[in-house]
Amino acid sequence: MIDWFSGNEGYIQGALVAALLAASVQVALRAGVLSFASVGFYGVGAYGTGYLTATQGWGTAPAATVVVIITMVLSWLLALVLARLRALYLAMATIAFVLLVQIGALAWDSVTGGPLGLFGIPPALGTGGVALILAGVLAVNALTQRGAVGRRLLLLRKDEALASALGVNVRHQHQIAFVWSAVLGSLAGISQASLLTVFTPENLGFSVMVSALTALVVGGTWHWSGPLIGGVVFSWFLSAYLGFASDYRGVVEGALTVVVLVFLPKGLAGLFELLDPGRLRRAAAGPTGGPGGVSAGVPGGASTGQDRPVPAQEMGVSS
């Protein structure tokens, strides 16, 4: 057992951080915010902690606290700046933000160590500490998937105009989701820096965003367990058992992702639904059918019937 753990610890750590990062994207998406900015705040968290601990000699706890507060302030400001962007435009702007963070990490030598990065970051958190952080985050996400908050989130991502007409302050909710997403990204960065003890610009950028998204979508975008499942599958199983074929890893990951996207719209988490359809149907409420929302950008009167995952045998009279 102990042998097994030490042999797999690196993969487990990778899975934990990947799950945190995937969860950070998820909490934005589930409120209807197509933002990847949390991957940029992953860099802020990692470099912030690295700088305060390794360079300035702070303890990990005060450093992490300050970094999370800085993340909240910065992400709130960014949310104000990006407030009017929607959908693919927001996605694009936040991808640019992620890349700017990477460029900033390369250029701001005095804090980030430039291309060489930061090293000697104290390994204060450990696998257990990061697992605790992840457990806490997943617990919050699981609780807010149900009840009034869960209903509000579903409403927000399905129909913004309706949400506002039912008393939801859409902009405010989007900002909260954006900041919460940034905080989770920052926590993932803090965890990664503490686990690796080094952090370089190589650990940032587009490919990190891609891994987080892939893990999320394969795991299950709309269920709280999706990030965990995706993180375990990609950063643990595939890394551990695909090592011999690492040359083909890109092909395996890509193909697996496409297959899941096409055949399992709810990701691997959706498989549980087969075991327990009643509970998850309400909780996850992801897509299972309907002819694609190509015209749903304008949720007008004609959208009836487009957004409804009805099992065929239940199809009664509809519009």
């Binding site: 009034a148 039912l166 309400r282 409420a285 992801g286 519009s319």
Partner: peptide, 20 residues
């Protein structure tokens, strides 16, 4: 057009009308 939220039951949809 009908604007009921898919993935919620009838009662949960009506709860949306009071919870905010």
């Amino acid at each position: 057009g009908i604007r009921l939220v898919e993935g919620l039951t009838v009662r949960e949809n009506v709860l949306l009308g009071v919870q905010e």
